[in-house]
Write a protein that binds this DNA or RNA. Sequence first.
RNA 1: GGCCUCUUAGUAUAACGGUUAGUACAUCGGGUUUUCAUCCCGACAACGCGGGUUCGACUCCCGCAGAGGUCACCA
Length: 479
Amino acid sequence: MNIVTRFAPSPTGYIHIGNVRSAIYPYLLARQNHGTMILRIEDTDRARYVEGATELIEDTLEWLGLNWDEGPIVGGDHGPYFQSERQEIYHEWARKLIASGRAYADPTPSEKIEEYRKQCSEQKIPFLYRNFRPTDTPEWQPGLPLRFKAEPKDYDWHDEVMGDMHAGPEVQDDIILIKKDGFPTYNFAHIVDDALMGVTHVMRGVEYLSSTPNYLALYEALNLERPKLVSLPHILAPQGNKKLGKRDGAKSVTEYRDDGVLAEAMLNYLACLGWNDGTEQEIYTKDELIKNFSLDRIQSSGARYDETKLLWLNGQWLRRIFDEQGAEALYARTTDFWPASAASYDDDYKVKVLSIIYDRLKTLSDLRTMTDYFFTDPEIDLDMLINNKFLKKISESSLEDLLKTAIQKLTDLRNWQADDLQAALNELLAETGKKPAELFSLIRISLSFAPFSPALNLTMDVLGRETTLARLNAVARAI
RNA sequence: GGCCUCUUAGUAUAACGGUUAGUACAUCGGGUUUUCAUCCCGACAACGCGGGUUCGACUCCCGCAGAGGUCACCA
């Protein structure tokens, strides 16, 4: 069987980390089975439609590397892939239901419905429209909503994540199929679309679980085959037990990209939130995820979003790319993340800086704050030097002497290279009788005036003889 | 309120009747000649509660509690 999955978002805004997973899992399943992944835009709610949201969605999927085989941009044999362009199709299927007596036009004014709803809520009973079903219904015409005529009964079905399910007649209702504006509801449109597009696995959030019996009734009434149903548990906000949503500050996926999180790390983290393959592996490439993914190992409970772990994974990925693909490969990802002061420097120099700083990065945007002193002379901050925990017991004149001794030693150094620099530093240690913490802190801070920096010899190597000596001399004069 | 789902350390999870309940993040301690990281070593820390079934239960069954979802002309 050819597996066909889909991601079917509404273009109401950006995709955030709480809802990308319903794109990732269908993608993994489709790729694993050499099947088809469809992107369908569910834009039937004109009020919530947001201009540009479709592009935002496409951008997010592309960044994560979740390409689709059918849908906007790429086309396909089952289009259109925007529900707003499928009006005729929905109406055609709606007419079938009218013909078979399973749908009726509803003339009830909305105030009346609101009243019914209120009655039920006051009596603390569930609101079922079928209990208020109008007896005399007109012919369906524009301006009138079309409702399904429920014939409630028991349903049994299997959910690939939740297991065997059962629901009684009490949950089935006369749901709206076509709204009065002529657009279909999600409830109706997705049934028709999934069937026409050959979707074999419907993967969506658990919030649809309670309406599933209505969908089963619809498949039956339309004489359509049931796809496999896969309910994905929610991703929960870091605090509390609420589903992670925009209101809890769920950031858009692309915001993480702009903050310097790698797509590999994001995909890795999200895929493993609520799914695991039973091994103790933590780092997964996209190909490994595709290979190892399985529906039956998706958790049935919600998982809390933990940004700390995402950032840890990002660090792992930064180092992995550097170690396995080389400095150039990682450098290629850093283009937008250098401080302004780096603009005039060439690629070779920046690659060197990256090479000695990369294992201190959590995100690429850390480059902006951590590398400035490689590109511009830092402002001399004597307080920082004098109050350093290793240097504060040394008098200022001793510091000056020590610095001058170091300058002399480094000035005499023949080869300005990491190894030779380290050798010179070691000799300096022996000659001055200072502890590494004292001597190295003095030089390190004098060069960077930063809270931390890479190994001293590497820093001096990258900075070069001229800059290093100039900075040290400047500090020696200032003390 | 009805219906439905979920419940292992702070977090994500492993275990599919018999383990000192494993792993990772976080936290705390130590090591790798300065700092901050990386890396390595170590520590802390969990089966929601109550009944069964069984020689034996985190695992199976039944209650309870807690949390979440749903009951839209939103998806």
